[in-house]
Structures are given as C-alpha cells and as structure tokens.
Amino acid sequence: MEKRVIFKGWLLPLLLLTPQVVVTAVFFFWPAGQAVWQSLFIPDPFGLKSQFVGLGNFEFLLRDPFYRASFVTTAVFSLLVTAVSMGVALYLAVLADRLIKGAGTYRTLLIWPYAVAPAVAGVLWLFMFNTRVGVVSWYLGLLGYDWNHVLNGGEAMGLVVVASAWGRISYNFLFFLAGLQAIPRSVIEAAAIDGAHFWTRFRTIVFPLLSPVTFFLLVVNIVYAFFETFGVIHTITSGGPQQSTTILVYKVYADGFVGQDLGSSAAQSVILLIVVGILTVIQFKFIERRVHY
C-alpha cells in the first residue's frame, strides 16, 4: 500500500494546484488547442479569410511521400544524435571518473561546448566542413575523399548529427559523471576483490546502477533531438539535399514560415504532439520498468 497524504476537503488542494494548472493551461493547453483548431482550416497568411477543410490538411500531409519520409529521417536522426551524444558522454565520464590528477580541468573543458548555442554550433561545423574552404573537407580531400554534404544526403545527415550531438555531449557528461560518483565505492571495491575486471564491473554493477540517469538522459535527449536541433539544421543544410535532413520540426517551420501555409503547419504540430505523446508513453511504460532506482 502506497503512503499518501490526504487533504480534508477540496478547497485547499485545489488552491495549491491552481498556479500549476494555470501555467499549464496558458502555456500548453491554450496554444495546443489553437494548433488543433487551426489544423482544420486553410487560412491565408494575413488571417483575412480561412477555409474549413476538416481533416483535409492531414490528408494532404499523409499523402505526401516527402512527409512520410520525414518520419524516417526524424527517427534516424534522433536515434543517432541520442546514441552518439550519450555513448561518447558515458565513455568520457567513465574516463574522467578514474582520473585523479587534473580532473577539474578536464571536466571544465568538456563542459564548455554546452555553452555554445545550437545555431552557432551549426555555423562552426559548417565552416569546418564547407565543401570548398573547410579545413576538414580540405584534409579529407588530401586523403582522396571528396566531401560534399551539399549534394550527398548521407554526409549531410552525418554532419548535422555530429553538430547536434557535440554540444549535447557536455550535458550528458555532467549527468553521467554525477551518476558515477554517486555509486558507492564499496560496492565496486567488493567486486574488484572478488576478481571482477573493469569491464565486468561496469556491465554488472556500474551500468545498472546508472540506469536512472541513463533513462532520464534518454528521454531528455530524444526530446532535444526532436525539437531543439532546429538551429543546427537550419544553419547547416536547411533540410537538404533532397530533404534528407528535413526532420519533422524543420518541416513545420518550412511550411509555416517559408511557405506561409499555416494550416499544414498546424496539422504537422498536432501530429508531432501525438508522436511525442506516444514516445513518452512507450518510454515510461516499457523502458522505465527496467530501471533500478
């Protein structure tokens, strides 16, 4: 039986809840409701007239092969960003955790990239990989590799993934490091005395004990990859070439603010809302069960 604090009556709990409910209503339910309402219309950009089309916007979207492809692009992109940023961060955190000398400097340096805004990060990476004047593409050219993310979709995807994951590594690193330091030394020492090697200790003790942190980061990183990587994609590829880096959020922007097609843009927001809802449910229903707190 769970322990609960029971209030007598309704008034006080309602009163205590009000601020939270108001904030949620104003900043979430109201705009979300607007998006749902707008998704049923095709308005003109100036808001002078508007045609009710029912589910026409959704039909138009789901018929568009590029929109359907954008789901796959988003999935690939989010998984890659999450895997790369969490993988590298965990590796670095494990190394940093073992450091005795200079750990502070090492940590500080690793945290720096987090301070760089996504759009700026995008421009930095773009300069390095610029097909003509970029340093990295120049060295790749010396090695006989012709880097051209402007035309090659795979390379474009790789570049936006790296640029998006880069700043994120710092954030993940912080959490992993804190998680590692919270694991009691005695447990690890006991395992070491039992003859467990580093890898065995990591697999059987450290990683399971890190699982709450890992789960938290998984949720946060997927949300990041879905929504906050806009700046990187906008500066590096603008969704190209041939929409190979057009993730769902970028398309919402492109249709709404470049195409002035607010109906389609609103419909996409609604679809995105549903997708994120489903993802969250999956994460909490199926993955959280395997997390040890």
Partner: peptide, 16 residues
C-alpha cells in the same frame, strides 16, 4: 519560396 525549395532539391538530385 517553397516551390523554389522544391526546385532546388530536384536540381540537386540532377547535379548529384
């Protein structure tokens, strides 16, 4: 503006 984006994409496919 968006049609130009489409044209850009298709032309890129030709250049590639």
């Amino acid at each position: 503006d968006q049609i130009r984006g489409i044209i850009d994409e298709e032309l890129e496919a030709v250049w590639a």
